[in-house]
Amino acid sequence: MALSDRPAERHRQVAGLFTDRVRGTKSWDAPSPVDGWTARDVVRHLTGWFPGFLASGAGVDLPRGPSVDENPVLAWQVHCDGVQAVLDDPETAYRELTDRHIGRLPLESAIDRFYTADVFMHTWDLSRATGQDDRLDPDLCARLLGEMEQMEQAIRSSGQYGARVEVPGDADVQTRLLGFIGRDPFWSAR
């Protein structure tokens, strides 16, 4: 299925796949490809950083569910539904997000660029940690890789991505994206 070019619909699709992986998780303590993280920590990351980013940059407060330690499935669902509600709100088209690192952006563009992309990439982490289908949309992989390669120095200096993992020159775009963001595309919990 091709992903939409509209931020609200793309989030619905990307977050929907992540939701499927959350619901399919059998062991929340399974190690993930992110060093030192478990499957639960992948969900903790996504539900943890974004509410503050939205609140400080756009004055948007997301609803809070239970803690990820208490109920990772419900914590994710409340969070995901809250983000979708922001994107589906017609007023969002007229709002901006301001951040000292990125300047001013239309709110829906900021959500798409920083958050939906993060959910997309972390879908692989959760899928791989829990033994689920880890294939990502190749078109979005290619788009993200192309955008990030243009600002590699800024990405590396942010501390939010690991060192590039070298992959074969003829690797598919998902493998190249994973290597670029510092994941070992061949990682296995076993």
Rank of each mutant, 00 (worst) to 15 (best):
M1G: 15
M1Q: 14
A8P: 03
E9Q: 15
Q13S: 14
G16R: 13
G16H: 13
G16Y: 13
F18Q: 08
T19N: 13
R21S: 12
V22S: 06
V22Q: 07
R23Y: 06
K26C: 02
P31L: 02
V34H: 01
V34K: 02
D35R: 07
T38Y: 00
R40W: 00
R40N: 00
D41P: 00
D41M: 07
R44G: 10
T47R: 04
W49Q: 02
W49E: 04
W49I: 03
F53Y: 15
L54A: 12
G57S: 12
A58I: 10
G59Q: 05
D61C: 00
L62G: 08
G65P: 12
S67A: 10
V68G: 06
V68N: 07
V68A: 10
E70T: 14
P72L: 05
V73N: 03
V73L: 03
Q77N: 10
V78M: 05
Q84M: 07
P90F: 05
E91Y: 00
E91S: 06
T92L: 05
A93S: 11
E96Q: 12
E96I: 09
L97M: 14
T98S: 13
D99C: 07
R100E: 13
R100Y: 04
R104E: 15
L105P: 02
L105Y: 07
S109P: 00
D112C: 10
D112R: 08
Y115W: 08
T116L: 04
D118Q: 09
F120N: 01
H122M: 02
T123D: 09
T123K: 01
W124E: 00
W124R: 01
S127D: 12
R128T: 12
D133E: 12
D134V: 00
R135H: 11
R135S: 09
D137V: 04
G146A: 09
E147K: 05
E147M: 06
E152K: 12
I155Y: 08
R156Y: 04
G162V: 04
R164K: 15
R164M: 11
R164D: 04
V165H: 12
P168M: 12
A171P: 11
A171W: 12
D172T: 11
F180H: 13
G182H: 01
S188H: 14
R190E: 08
